[in-house]
Simulated scan of single mutants.
Amino acid sequence: MNVLDLVRPDLRDFAGYRSARSDTLQGTVWLNANESPWPNPADADALLRRYPDPQPARLRETLADLYGCQPSQLLAGRGSDEGIDLLLRALCRPGLDTVIITTPTFGMYAVCARLHGTRVIDVPLREDDGGFSCDFDAVADAAERADARIVFLCSPGNPGGNLLPLEAIASLARRLAGRAAVVVDEAYIEFADAPSATTLLASLPNIAVLRTLSKAHALAAARIGAVIADAKLIAVLRRCQAPYPLPAPCVEAAMEALAPPARARTKDRIARTIGERSRLQDALTKLPTVKRVLPSHANFVLIRCVDAESAFAALLAAGIVVRDLRAQPGLGDALRISIGTPEQNDRVLAALTALSARCGAAA
């Protein structure tokens, strides 16, 4: 299949905007972008007076090495959110096309689709003793019936923490070849010790993968993410992207964070997070105020509570802010707890243990 067949017909020949930094030119006096010839007094390194490179080669090469792809298969952008938005822009005609989501899942898929005028069909995840799982046959059926252009999958899932089988993702992409793109959001894959869906790209060009430096690499404020896909689709997304998506200070921070010494520290912290996740899960399962701790392959745990309001209030009273999910369908008793430092996790357990003692005394 030609992945360009999935692109909106009106955008297949779209050239996009060519900024002053789009052309590779050499010179010593730069007067082509209407920039200030003098740095701002607050810009000690004179880094900010020039527009940044839209797609810095060294950043793309470093991210490609990190994610096991070619630089031509990678578009760097503002976190995973921009990748979601760009894919919707490039593949979905406003008011005409449809995307598939599987709730509970990351809310930005539906938000971006709605802002883009794209219909959303939900094929909810199933919950059983093993946690949340995806009914891939139902997803494929829904995509075919609706002639969907994108299927959004989150693996590991947010907020469920569930890991989707790679072979099932591949089967779905094969079934939808030439009809829809299967977008796999791997924001938390570093915590799963599992292969990436990027390993499927060579044979399945309708797969796109979202990655981010916000989680495992601790760069949430820098807003550096990537879309990894067939090189022809990446070229289309680039033409749909804003002229200067990557602030130079954020690129510098990313390069420093991806240097070998920093990557070694990140690897160690991922291992510590996984260890703390297991410890927190084990302890939470023993508390009478917690009905269920769902399995997780991410840097958080989802718990179902006997009284989620009391649990949320008890944690907040102890100065601990967790994610209240009770407004989401099927999660009326659920809280999501990010894995913190050992000391922070101890505070979570102490607050919920104290709540259990109070509830036991009241009974």
Rank of each mutant, 00 (worst) to 15 (best):
Asp10Tyr: 01
Asp10Cys: 04
Phe14Arg: 09
Ser19Glu: 07
Arg21Gln: 11
Thr24Glu: 09
Val29Phe: 15
Ser36Lys: 05
Pro39Phe: 02
Gln70Tyr: 08
Pro71Gln: 08
Pro71Gly: 11
Gly79Ser: 10
Ser80Trp: 11
Asp85Phe: 13
Leu96Tyr: 04
Arg119His: 04
Arg126Val: 07
Asp129Ser: 11
Phe136Thr: 12
Val139Gln: 09
Ala143Glu: 01
Asp147Lys: 14
Leu153Asn: 02
Leu163Gly: 12
Glu167Cys: 15
Arg175Asn: 02
Arg179Cys: 07
Glu190Met: 05
Ala197Thr: 06
Thr198Asn: 11
Ala208Leu: 01
Val209Ser: 01
Ala218Asp: 03
Lys232Trp: 04
Arg238Glu: 15
Pro243His: 07
Leu246Trp: 11
Leu246Asp: 03
Pro247Gln: 03
Val251Met: 09
Ala257Asn: 00
Pro261Gly: 03
Arg265Gly: 00
Glu276Val: 03
Lys286Gln: 14
Leu287Asp: 09
Pro288Ile: 12
Thr289Gly: 10
Thr289Asp: 09
Ser296Gly: 03
Asp307Arg: 05
Ala308Cys: 12
Val322Ser: 04
Gln328Arg: 01
Pro329His: 01
Leu331Trp: 13
Arg336Glu: 07
Pro342Val: 02
Glu343Tyr: 09
Arg347Gln: 15
Ala357Leu: 15
Ala357Met: 13
Ala363Ser: 13
